[in-house]
Design a protein around this nucleic acid. Structure first.
Length: 458
RNA sequence: GCGCCCGUAGCUCAACUGGAUAGAGCACCGGAUUUCUAAUCCGGUGGCUGCAGGUUCGAGUCCUGCCGGGCGCGCCA
């Protein structure tokens, strides 16, 4: 199966809006893999659209040299502003896109530079987030370029193509727009350029024909709902894939500011992912220093990193929002309640027990006896793990796993309060130690499937 | 205008796809530490699940109609 996720537009720095697709997609890929599926990660980065025409046209004007992505960010902003206000510039930008798609060597070289800077930035962010995406998972829009003329040909051969106002369109009866007029899927612009619909059709075909997958999960925001409905319908009609390929769009809402409006900081830009992670680590470091001042500085920093990043990821993973939701620093960086630090804390407590008791967790054997309600509740939770993973895989909802792990950690905390372990007599001691071991193992594995780490102490 | 999504405690979210008294966390109030980490645990306050009908033995969940919000609907992605 293919998990299509993250998919940022290049030439802009990654911001908080990219978080959900990246993190949810990564968790799903991990869970599917864990269950034995062959998972192909695909990062369908936007490197081919009009925005690059804008950049290239702007580059022509300013004759600048942008090595830093921060520059590229400003560069993009300036280009965008001119694109919106200057028809001549907009026209020239579209021309650049056509040249780019036609393979003009000089244009390609300039474009390549933008791509490299931007991709390496993305990779840094993935590494920092602990996301399993690699450069080899990048399957950019541009990768489908050579396929696009053939996509048009095949659509024409299937008698699906209609010319409308100079553009090549596919009209399907089930889609209508304003005033009940048929709604087109535009696959080729009047100037000959291709669009993201064309690319997505080529992607479906490649996944069906070459990758021979039987399931594709698309993780994007909900605004692309109609788009994917259309793409999937056209792809089936054109024979790019058959009914045995499950095409699933998993939408989610946008992140909004506290005022409920699209997310902007006072400066007018979105919050960058790196800023969010910096803040998360800083808050976690302050807390770990307060709670465990006796730990070495280096260890505190490492704990803060794992805890801070985990908190951010968990905040997103634990929710199943298909509509927009409000971003809130305090909520996203909370370390109490249903959060990853709570789960990590439960794990570290168990490690602490093993350290204190000189117990080698790997060598534990015991007959588990469940005498108290707390022991029974914990054991019941432990055996549900597999079933939860299957549910996550089936529905594409990582929050099922979060809910489960929180319940598991809660039942462990109660057990911990009620049942002494190291001070218990044998064979109860060994039984409880084994419960601890299984709990720690499940917490670690569960968190790992969410892309979140654990620490030995915190 | 048409279409998609959403509306659950003050706030952020759950509810195994139609099952029992709608659950958690945060916030607020009150407790617990001579014992393995108090980033914890225990108790309490807080609900006409937007409104009105309908289907059903049973509805937060399904159907209809309203109200409120978000998004989408021809050459952006």
């Amino acid at each position: 199966m293919v998990v299509d996720y993250s998919s940022p537009n290049l030439a802009k720095e990654m911001h908080v809006g990219h978080l959900r697709s990246t993190i949810i997609g990564d968790a799903l890929a991990r869970v599917l893999e864990k269950l034995g599926h062959e998972v192909i990660r695909q990062n369908h980065v936007g490197d081919w659209g009009t925005q690059f025409g804008m950049l290239l046209a702007h580059l022509e004007d300013v004759d600048g040299d942008s090595d830093e992505l921060a520059d590229l960010e400003n560069f993009y902003r300036a280009a965008k502003a001119q694109f919106d206000s200057d028809p001549e510039f907009a026209e020239r930008s579209r021309g650049k896109v056509v040249s780019l798609q036609a393979g003009d060597p000089a244009i390609r070289a300039q474009w390549q530079k933008f791509i490299e800077i931007s991709l390496s930035h993305c990779q840094q962010t993935y590494d920092r987030l602990g996301v399993t995406l690699e450069m080899t998972d990048v399957m950019a829009e541009s990768a489908y370029n050579d396929e696009l003329p053939d996509i048009i040909d095949k659509l024409r051969a299937a008698d699906l193509l209609t010319e409308s106002d100079g553009a090549q369109c596919v009209f399907l009866d089930e889609f209508t727009g304003k005033d009940d007029k048929p709604l087109p899927v535009i696959v080729q612009k009047s100037d000959g350029g291709y669009l993201y619909a064309t690319t997505d059709l080529a992607a479906v075909r490649l996944r069906a024909r070459d990758l021979k997958i039987d399931r594709a999960l698309y993780l994007t925001d909900a605004r692309q709902n109609l788009h994917f409905k259309q793409i999937f319908a056209v792809a089936r009609k054109a024979g790019f894939c058959d009914e045995t390929l499950a095409l699933e769009h998993h939408p989610f809402g946008n992140m909004l500011g506290k005022d409920g409006k699209p997310f902007k900081t006072r400066e007018g830009g979105v919050i960058k992912l790196n800023e969010l992670l910096d803040e998360a680590e800083a808050r976690a470091l302050a807390l770990v220093s307060e709670k465990s001042p006796d730990l070495e500085v280096a260890e505190r920093i490492e704990i803060a990193r794992v805890v801070g990043i985990g908190a951010v990821k968990y905040a997103d993973l634990s929710k199943n929002r298909t509509s927009d939701y409000i971003f809130d620093w305090d909520q996203m960086l909370s370390f109490e309640g249903n959060t990853s630090p709570y789960l990590q804390y439960a794990y570290s407590r168990i490690q602490s027990i093993f350290r204190r008791g000189g117990i080698d967790a790997a060598k534990l054997t015991a007959v588990v006896s469940l005498d108290s309600p707390e022991e029974r509740a914990l054991a019941v939770n432990l055996v549900r793990f597999q079933e939860v993973l299957e549910q996550v895989a089936q529905d594409g909802f990582p929050h099922f796993l979060c809910t489960y792990l929180f319940g598991l950690a809660t039942s462990f905390m109660r057990f911990y309060e009620a049942c002494p372990i190291l001070n218990a007599d044998e064979p109860v001691k060994a039984s409880r130690a084994l419960l601890c071991q299984r709990t720690a193992q499940t917490l670690q594995e569960g968190l790992s499937l969410l892309g979140i780490g654990t620490v030995e102490r915190m």
